[in-house]
Simulated scan of single mutants.
Amino acid sequence: MAAKALDYQPVKRWKHSTVRVGDYLYMWGGKQPGLPEVHNNEKKKSMCSVMEVCHLRTGRWEQKPTTGNPPLGVRGYAAAAIGREIFYFGGDCNHGDCYHNSLYSFNVDTFNWKELSPTTSHHSPMMKDDCDMIAIKVNGEDYLVVIGGYGPSSNNTPQQPGAQYSETKVLYSSYQRCNEIHFYKLSTGQWISPT
């Protein structure tokens, strides 16, 4: 009897997300074997320019190429879906103290990445990982809500009034956990800090 060919399986990883859209699971990024510990280079971009897709009805995985530039916050990011788009916020670069507060969209029909809001220390939410994000609708408008997180204390965005921050020192660096809540209004591309 001939041996059955093994089905494709994604590599082991951690600090990633898997998001359901329709009958498919979309898994991207995370800390995985061979991921360069650099801000960006060709190998990292190549590894991060694929999406792992699982067809729920068959349980089969496949790896599909993407277009556009994927987020640099490759691990510890937050993800949520609205319709046929998956949104990715924040994360860290897999090296040093390089955290992000960028927001990207990924279209599951075109497999194209699009940067909606770049990483900057000039606006909130803070540059962080290990936060969460949910999609909500208010008065017919779509919003993404980013909640909590962990990131560097220095060279970060201004603190949100009313939010709580707790600082810890690790070797020569200071980090903070927070309970920030920020809204991103999709129709205007605007970050909103509730009062």
Rank of each mutant, 00 (worst) to 15 (best):
A2L: 14
A3T: 08
K4H: 07
L6S: 09
L6G: 04
V11M: 08
K12G: 12
R13Q: 05
W14Y: 12
K15F: 04
K15R: 04
V19S: 01
V19I: 14
G22T: 08
D23A: 07
Y24C: 13
L25S: 00
Y26D: 00
Y26M: 00
Y26V: 00
G29S: 14
G29M: 14
G34V: 13
L35I: 08
P36G: 09
E37K: 06
V38F: 05
V38A: 13
H39G: 08
H39T: 10
H39Q: 11
N40M: 09
K43N: 09
K45I: 08
S46V: 04
M47E: 10
M47R: 01
S49W: 05
V50I: 14
V50L: 04
M51E: 06
M51L: 12
E52F: 00
V53K: 00
C54H: 04
C54V: 02
C54S: 06
L56F: 04
R57F: 09
R57A: 15
T58H: 12
T58W: 15
W61S: 02
Q63H: 05
K64P: 03
P65T: 13
T66K: 12
T67Q: 07
T67I: 05
P70I: 15
P70V: 11
P70E: 08
P71L: 11
G76K: 08
A80K: 07
R84D: 06
G90I: 07
H95V: 13
H95S: 05
H95M: 11
G96V: 13
D97I: 11
C98R: 10
C98A: 10
S102A: 09
N107P: 06
V108M: 00
T110F: 14
T110V: 12
F111V: 05
K114T: 13
K114E: 10
K114Y: 06
E115R: 14
E115Y: 04
E115P: 06
T119M: 08
S121K: 15
H122K: 15
H123P: 01
S124E: 13
S124Y: 13
M126E: 06
M126R: 03
K128E: 00
D129E: 10
D130A: 15
D130R: 04
D130S: 15
C131A: 11
C131R: 00
M133H: 03
M133W: 02
I134G: 08
A135Q: 09
A135I: 08
A135F: 05
K137P: 01
K137H: 07
K137I: 10
V138P: 02
V138F: 06
N139F: 03
N139E: 11
G140F: 11
E141H: 13
D142V: 02
Y143I: 04
L144D: 12
V145K: 09
V145T: 09
G148P: 00
G149L: 03
S153W: 07
S154T: 03
T157A: 14
P158C: 12
P158D: 05
Q159S: 02
Q160T: 08
Q160G: 03
P161A: 15
G162T: 07
A163W: 01
Q164K: 05
Q164A: 01
S166K: 07
E167M: 03
T168W: 00
T168N: 01
T168C: 03
Y172C: 09
S173D: 03
S174W: 04
S174N: 05
Q176D: 04
Q176V: 01
Q176C: 10
N179C: 09
H182P: 02
K185I: 07
L186H: 06
S187G: 06
S187M: 05
S187R: 08
G189A: 10
S193K: 09
P194Y: 12
P194I: 12
T195P: 04
